[in-house]
Design a protein around this nucleic acid. Structure first.
Lengths: 339, 339
DNA sequence: CTGAAAGCGCTTACAG
DNA sequence: CTGAAAGCGCTTACAG
């Protein structure tokens, strides 16, 4: 058996005694091939271990059947859950999913995106883009099939998938408020994300609805990273009147807040309650297990993939701006207000 | 400005008033082009936003300058650290790194690997392969540039990168033994990995060296997942004579063991010590912070990438089997034996 | 230092 | 139901 990677479609044609065209047809599952012919071709493919060259296929004008997912990094479970969902949906539909990041790249992000997309990918899922809206728009105009997960601002024109961040924040706040908390610290997320802004809006409106004044000292900037959770909690605990609860904009920052608070010798939730956002798998194993807002990450990933595949099939896709529900998951890090 | 994705090298040639050949030369940084010509071409490229078609480039016989990393899943920080390192080294050398998994794929893993590799990737890093050794060997024979990270068994012929797992296990055991522990439970990793076997060997030999008999009840099978850590710890704690320390084969299983032990109302490390392996970033934030063995994951990823790039450049690469050092990181989950 | 030709391995119209 | 031709956008020898 020769080296599979040097076998071409023409070789198969020769062995099967048909034209390359016919081999192409059976390989692509097209109709209009006699059963007997199909058999012969299949047999030759099986016997040789032939695998089509994706570059040639793509160049000849069709598609690669590989989808890309561009992520800010590989390090959080937020990303991995999204990727699991996207990968699952892609494979269901006969596509490959490939992940990449441009955090290290020297080139401008947009060039980078164009480069890898030109020919290699049929479509792209962009998670938490740190590319300017205008450039994204340009990419979209230029015909790149894409959907944004957790987009920046109000790109109403671009296909996107998000969770209902505002409502999620409201749920967490109502939970905390119902437990009697009145001073609640808020650690914000990356300020260039709509998700973060929406959660902040939920925080503020929840307070207002109960007639509680917003105290700017209780709002700390953040960036979704653990270390910022530590800093936020630290700032809060140095206040004359520290909060009795902290609502961190994601689970990793909640973890950071827990680290700090525990280092100070406080008990969770007896002395202070802590809530997160995301419900990454790990959060159930924090100590104490984290009360958080569940984003359907897996579903968001698969929904994004299905949207792209629909675009590829030119199927009309009415819901270009998908928003999935969030829900409160009560575990052990929140309890009645201590004072 | 026309749609960048429809501009070809020929368009640039026309605009710059040179032949396509010359454009190709400047794009690829080849010598033997007049400075003035180079300038003209560059200007045309800049103005148009031209980006080369990777498929055409690859098909024409060269390379894509994209490397792949095939991983069992995207969900653990063990993977993300490896990917960070690999991505960094790739970008340093002007390559892209793309991640993918075949866990959902219906097809046989090897077909899958061949498919995506045919044309799309210049080389492949395979992490914790669950592909039969023989098939890997076949892939290698067929000319695929690859390196295995954490390989299965004794594939001496394949390029690989590993940590010194045996020594790592010895370090943890010596630490525990020095703290006075005599009954130490061991939760094993995925049995088809060499890493797991080597750690088990380290466990056993450490005991023997101190003249402590090996008790099979204190060795529990595992698979590197959190849930298996829970089960292992559970089995140990039901013993007539439970261990005073547990050494889990990776950090995620150590986390599981911590979960269980705490649910039983035991204190860590006062009542029982727990040690892990990997030193994933999260482990410093477990409660209590985990004592573990550090694998240089980032470095392993970048070393693997550099090995592939060397192969691509036909640079002789003497050290085809790289083994990186492990070290003990003492934090708060281990302490003196309690009885 | 620069260019004309052939070809990489496929697929898309177009015939029959 | 099947095939001969042209072409996708590049690059590799080969000339000059």
């Amino acid at each position: 058996m020769p080296n599979p990677s040097s076998i071409t479609l023409e070789d198969i044609a020769r062995v099967a005694g048909v034209s390359p065209m016919t081999v192409s047809r059976v390989l692509n599952g097209k109709s209009g091939v006699a059963a007997a012919t199909r058999q012969k071709v299949m047999a030759a493919v099986q016997a040789s271990g032939y695998v089509p060259n994706l570059n040639a296929r793509a160049l000849a004008g069709n598609q690669t059947r590989v989808l890309g997912m561009l992520v800010p990094d590989f390090s959080t479970q937020y990303i991995s859950e999204l990727a699991r969902g996207a990968g699952h949906a892609a494979n269901q539909a006969g596509y490959e999913l490939v992940l990449y990041t441009h955090s290290h790249a020297q080139q401008k992000a947009s060039t980078h995106v164009t480069l890898i997309t030109r020919g290699l990918l049929d479509g792209l899922i962009i998670v938490l883009p740190d590319i300017a809206d205008q450039q994204l728009e340009g990419l979209h105009q230029s015909g790149l099939r894409m959907v944004i997960v957790d987009h920046r601002h109000e790109l109403k024109s671009l296909p996107s998938v998000d969770a209902d961040n505002y409502r999620g924040a409201r749920l967490m706040m109502d939970h905390l408020l119902d437990l009697g908390h009145r001073r609640i610290g808020f650690i914000a997320g990356r300020p260039d994300t709509r998700a973060s802004l929406e959660r902040l809006r939920g925080y503020k409106e929840s307070l207002q609805l109960r007639g509680i004044e917003i105290d700017d000292q209780l709002i700390h900037p953040g960036n979704f990273l653990q270390a910022e959770g530590v800093k936020g909690a630290q700032a809060f605990m140095q206040l004359d009147q520290p909060p009795t609860a902290i609502f961190a904009c994601n689970d990793m920052m909640a973890l950071g807040a827990m680290d700090l608070v525990r280092d100070m010798g406080l008990r969770i939730p007896e002395d202070i309650s802590i809530g997160g956002f995301d419900d990454i798998p790990m959060s159930a194993h924090f100590y104490p297990a984290l009360t958080t807002i569940r984003q359907p990450l897996f579903d968001m990933g698969s929904a994004a993939t299905r949207m792209i595949i629909n675009m590829l099939s030119d199927i009309e896709n009415p819901s270009h701006q998908l928003e999935l529900k969030t829900e409160l998951v009560v575990r052990s890090s929140t309890g009645p207000a201590s004072n």
